[in-house]
């Protein structure tokens, strides 16, 4: 057993370094994905056929293809069109952004559509414009409802960063693979990697429960 702890202790600095990259990709990707998701989610719930169409194509395209394919396409295929390469970190962040964006768009759309039509009618009857109605009446209520699925998406995207090991962004899964390739301690290393993911996801889950409880008080 002493050997096991020794292996993990030696690998830990590298793994934590990988974990920080995992978190960097997740946090930046989710922030950008959140902006993208709100934008496309609102477009999806708008009455404008063009905006709705663009958003629908985006959401279907991303949800209909595996993230691994998206990541590989971004990193290896896209440069042949645009003529320059992304770094593995950039490609990873973009992959998480567009992926989370599509799922968050659906979360936002369903949140907006779950708000009773009477709320919009009451706001419009007071003379508020469509935009004001969205901003002051619909979105504040929709956001309360979408916080739990949004946090859930955060956990999913965080775990999905492990897929990005295929393009070698240096996140924790990739670091684990490299360590195992050198020391062949697959059980110890991959178990540690799994536990690291688990700890982060549990922390998110606890924050989520607190948030939900606070929202309920209002």
């Amino acid at each position: 057993m002493g050997g096991t702890f020794q292996v993990i202790r030696e690998a830990m600095p590298q793994l934590l370094q990988g974990l920080s990259i995992t978190l960097e990709i997740s946090v930046i990707g989710l922030l950008l994905g959140g902006i993208l998701g709100i934008l496309f989610g609102l477009m999806r719930s708008s009455n404008n056929a063009v905006l709705k169409g663009i958003a629908t194509v985006y959401v279907e395209l991303i949800r209909g293809t595996p993230m691994m394919v998206q990541a590989i396409w971004l990193y290896f295929a896209l440069p042949q069109i645009v003529g320059f390469y992304f770094s593995t970190l950039q490609a990873s962040i973009i992959a998480i952004t567009i992926n989370a964006g599509a799922y968050i768009a659906e979360i936002v759309r369903s949140g907006v559509q779950s708000i009773d039509k009477g709320q919009v009618e009451a706001a419009r009857s007071l003379g508020l414009t469509g935009g004001q109605t969205m901003r002051y009446v619909v979105l504040p209520q929709a956001f309360r409802r979408i916080i739990p699925p949004l946090v859930n998406q955060f956990a999913i995207s965080l775990k999905d960063t492990s897929i990005l090991s295929v393009i070698g962004a240096g996140e924790v899964m990739r670091v684990g693979q490299i360590i195992v390739a050198n020391n062949f301690k697959a059980l110890q290393i991959y178990s540690t990697v799994a536990i690291l993911y688990l700890i982060i996801v549990e922390i998110i889950s606890i924050i989520s429960q607190r948030l939900e409880r606070r929202m309920r008080v209002d």
């Binding site: 009618e121 009451a122 009857s125 007071l126 003379g127 508020l128 009446v137 309360r144």
Partner: peptide, 30 residues
């Protein structure tokens, strides 16, 4: 619409706002 008041069967108050803000929202923004 801002010159005509409407009262609905199901009240349609804004549940996320206090009574005060329900009334002041349109006064402020409109």
């Amino acid at each position: 619409r801002r010159e005509i008041g409407m009262v609905f069967q199901h009240f349609n108050l804004f549940p996320h706002l206090r009574v005060r803000e329900n009334i002041t929202l349109a006064l402020r923004k409109v």
